[in-house]
Design a protein around this nucleic acid. Structure first.
Length: 635
DNA sequence: CTAGGGTTAG
């Protein structure tokens, strides 16, 4: 009689009683192959392990067929430690080897503290650790930033006489640096009789993380041999500390040396392109990635998506997103945020819906994107709903950023009282971003009294940020309260602050042209002004009326016009019209928010010149086409 | 069974 083999999952099914299990047990003779592939990954407790162990003995399967690392992890932190030891002592492999495998898994898991606990268990049961053991425990300490246990292991290494082991020295340097003891790390580094490329790379990365970019670069120049990871660490370092130009310069040098960029290099360089709005280099890196089969690498795709979004090419970002075989929450969140800052709120919400349907769990960042989408398009009720939903339906506790988004949403919509009430009822202390969002709403809706309230808090929380003073002065100026405006500007000056100079840039033929307001230094300045005057006549016919209320100062109307006409974004746009071919999209990058008059002017110009104009603002994108803007004037 | 570089928001 042929009987079907029951699977182990059936054998161990909780609904079977002991007698049924025995019956199965007697009749069932699985091959060791079945044991290995089907069975052993399914037991989860010492009790189940014991059943499997019995089975192994009964069927005469060699003990080594057991997934020993799994046995170890099940027994390690339960009172069954000795049981595992007993098995390990019979398999003909050094016992410590098996425990080390388990330690490695723990150290790389999401609860690295288990590695430290296991280490104590090993000591308690007199298992003798080796250098591998120490490596993994130290790695866990690095993950946890656990200097206390790290120091214990460090002393233990010396007790074992392993202090000259290079790998251990490298991890120890990493440990002290990552726990904020950078001077201890440097001390150890200096004492090392020999160092390898990993030692140097570790130091570079850690110095960058602590903000010592100059020391990191010195080390980079000083080190004897540099591999791809050294270059990448330094490129990423420049990017992370706000020096994307330096990152790209270094990348160029890396190419000159002839080293082949890895996936990680590509991610770092793309992030720098994102910050700079360097679409041309970004696209080149995209081609390189495709040629080198980096397409399957999720972070590469995620960074590409973000790069295209922040360079204003939403379609390209969507293409990368659609082409991904596998996506993470980062991919979805990046795309949702991208749609949000491009003013496509409904598409963003729709994408979120799709995300949920694929079974992907959103995180806090996903909701920041969603709230931004609602905020930028004035979807107040949807925004309120998402805010409530995140904790209720997904167990995500709103962070200060989410509260900031909500205040932005409410105050942009003019619901100033509600926004203020929302702030006073927050369970966490409001920060400068929260009050700043309220102040922004006051500017938009000309609420002077509320602006004063917001400013009082901002002066306390963020006194050195010139932006707040400028906004408040603007609010007074718009209300023609010149004395108050002057008082705020004086207050700002007394703190030693200057208004951040606005600038706009445009890339033509790979060359970045930067303009500041009133700029006459560009070689083509005269031509720019001539073309502007012609354009202006045309614009006036189309109904454009200069909005001079954006000028802070009390002066004659035609003086104000002169100032408005030479705003940096207008200069960059006219330069673009002159120097690009007809029909080409013009992309402008502005460091501050785009001015209201420029916004109105760009709409008219997009119609007259029949051009698409994409402006990357401090906060979002404006895509001007056929006389209107993608933000639908809600920003 | 060792050690080093990366992505969404802010």
């Amino acid at each position: 009689m042929v009987c079907t083999l029951p699977s182990l999952s059936l054998y161990m099914h909780p609904s079977l009683n002991i007698e049924q299990k025995h019956r199965l047990h007697r009749s069932w003779k699985p091959s060791s192959e079945i044991l290995r592939t089907e069975l052993f990954h399914k037991f989860n407790s010492p009790f189940e392990l014991q059943q499997v162990h019995t089975l192994v003995i009964k069927t005469g399967t060699p003990l080594s067929a057991l997934p020993l690392s799994r046995v170890a992890s099940i027994c390690a932190l339960t009172p069954r430690f000795a049981y595992a030891q007993q098995i390990f002592q019979q398999v003909g492999q050094p016992e410590i080897f098996i425990w080390n495998c388990c330690l490695k898994d723990f150290a790389e898991s999401d609860s690295p503290f288990d590695a430290i606990l296991l280490f104590y268990q090993l000591r308690k049961h007199n298992v003798c650790p080796d250098s591998f053991t120490c490596t993994f425990v130290l790695k866990a300490c690095v993950q946890l930033r656990d200097l206390f246990h790290g120091r214990i292991v460090h002393k233990f290494i010396q007790k074992l006489g392993l202090q000259s082991n290079l790998v251990l020295q490298n991890v120890t340097v990493h440990l002290y640096a990552s726990c904020g003891k950078i001077s201890d790390a440097i001390l150890l580094f200096n004492k090392m009789p020999q160092r390898d490329v990993i030692t140097w790379n570790t130091m570079i990365t850690q110095l960058v993380k602590r903000g010592y970019i100059d020391s990191a670069y010195k080390m980079f120049l000083q080190m004897p041999d540099r591999n791809v990871r050294s270059w990448t660490a330094m490129i990423a370092g420049f990017g992370q500390c706000g020096k994307p130009k330096e990152a790209i310069d270094l990348f160029t040098k890396m190419e000159e040396v002839g080293l082949k960029p890895s996936e990680v290099t590509v991610v770092a360089v793309l992030a720098a392109c994102t910050d700079l709005g360097a679409l041309d280099l970004g696209s080149r890196i995209h081609e390189y990635s495709d040629k080198n089969e980096f397409k399957r690498n999720i972070p590469v795709c995620n960074t590409l998506i973000d790069m295209y979004i922040k360079c204003g090419v939403l379609e390209a970002a969507l293409r990368v997103f659609e082409g991904m075989k596998e996506r993470t929450v980062v991919s979805w969140s990046a795309m949702i945020q991208g749609l949000a800052i491009h003013g496509k709120a409904n598409e963003a919400l729709e994408l979120f819906h799709q995300m949920i349907q694929t079974g992907m769990k959103p995180n806090g960042v996903t909701f920041i994107g969603l709230l931004n989408a609602c905020s930028h398009m004035g979807l107040i009720n949807k925004g309120r709903w998402f805010f409530a939903s995140m904790s209720r339906d997904y167990g995500i506790i709103p962070s200060i950023e989410h509260y900031g988004c909500m205040v932005d949403l409410l105050s942009r919509a003019g619901l100033m009282q509600e926004a203020h009430e929302f702030i006073t009822q927050m369970p966490i202390k409001p920060n400068a971003a929260v009050w700043g969002a309220l102040l922004g709403g006051c500017k938009l809706h000309k609420k002077i009294e509320m602006a004063k309230v917001a400013m009082r808090h901002l002066q306390e929380l963020d006194p050195l940020n010139d932006g707040h003073y400028v906004v408040l002065a603007n609010i007074y100026s718009e209300a023609k309260q010149w004395d108050d405006a002057a008082r705020v500007r004086k207050l700002m000056r007394n703190k030693g602050l200057q208004k951040t100079l606005g600038w706009s840039s445009i890339t033509v033929n790979g060359i970045v042209h930067e303009f500041v307001a009133g700029d006459e230094t560009h070689p083509q300045s005269q031509e720019i002004f001539k073309v502007w005057n012609k354009l202006l006549a045309h614009m006036r016919l189309k109904g454009y009326i200069p909005n001079t209320s954006v000028v802070l100062l009390d002066m004659e109307e035609n003086e104000k016009e002169k100032i408005v006409f030479r705003h940096s974004e207008k200069l960059a746009l006219v330069f673009g019209l002159i120097n690009t071919s007809h029909g080409e999209t013009i992309r402008i990058f502005k460091n501050l928010r785009v001015c209201e008059d420029c916004h109105a002017a760009f709409k008219v110009i997009s119609e007259i010149s029949n051009r698409e104009i994409v402006v990357r603002d401090r906060n979002r994108f404006h895509c001007f086409r056929d006389g209107s803007c993608s933000c639908k004037d809600y920003w």
